[in-house]
């Protein structure tokens, strides 16, 4: 599936709910399917800065596709990173770097997060793209 198609799927799923309490419940559920980072990989350099809760993110290359894993000590944060990983997982670094994340605005995710969490979301996307940049360089070398 393309990143665009996954985003459309997410927009549809979030549209099924009437209010943000239900959407949060859904996010919490999505967090449960997050591909978890190995405990020994929860190191300082894999921590995402700028979040009130702790978030660890790791990425590997399988063939020419990126595979992410993550974890957080807060459940809602886990849901947020799970959504991002779902959009980016099994995509090439180039596709990840070229993708526009329209679904965030479409769902209204940012407005419904606290300011600190919205910053956290931005930091997560930055870190995901940083991994993509690194692996793109590796693939091209």
């Amino acid at each position: 599936m393309t990143i665009k198609a996954i985003q459309e799927e997410l927009i549809e799923e979030f549209a099924m709910f009437d209010d943000w309490m239900q959407r949060y419940e859904y996010m919490i559920d999505l967090g449960k399917s997050l591909p978890l980072i190995d405990e020994e990989n929860k190191t300082e350099e894999r921590v995402i800065k700028g979040c009130q809760s702790k978030v660890w993110l790791d990425a590997e290359l399988k063939g020419d596709k990126m595979v992410f894993s993550a974890d957080s000590d807060a459940i809602i944060t886990k849901g947020i990173i799970a959504i991002l990983i779902r959009t980016y997982n099994n995509q090439t670094p180039t596709d990840i770097l070229n993708a526009k994340l329209d679904f965030i605005d479409e769902i209204g995710l940012k407005e419904h997060l606290s300011a600190t969490r919205a910053n956290g979301l931005t930091s997560m996307i930055k870190k995901l793209k940083l991994y993509a940049t690194a692996y793109q360089a590796k693939l091209n070398s």
Binding site: Y24, Q52, I76, T77, S114
Partner: peptide, 21 residues
């Protein structure tokens, strides 16, 4: 077992302003 931040987020959706962190 629950992160303070998560509690703050949910209660905010219910109209309650508390501080977390």
């Amino acid at each position: 077992g629950i992160h303070a931040y998560d509690i703050g987020t949910i209660v905010d959706k219910l109209g309650i302003a508390v501080r977390t962190g």
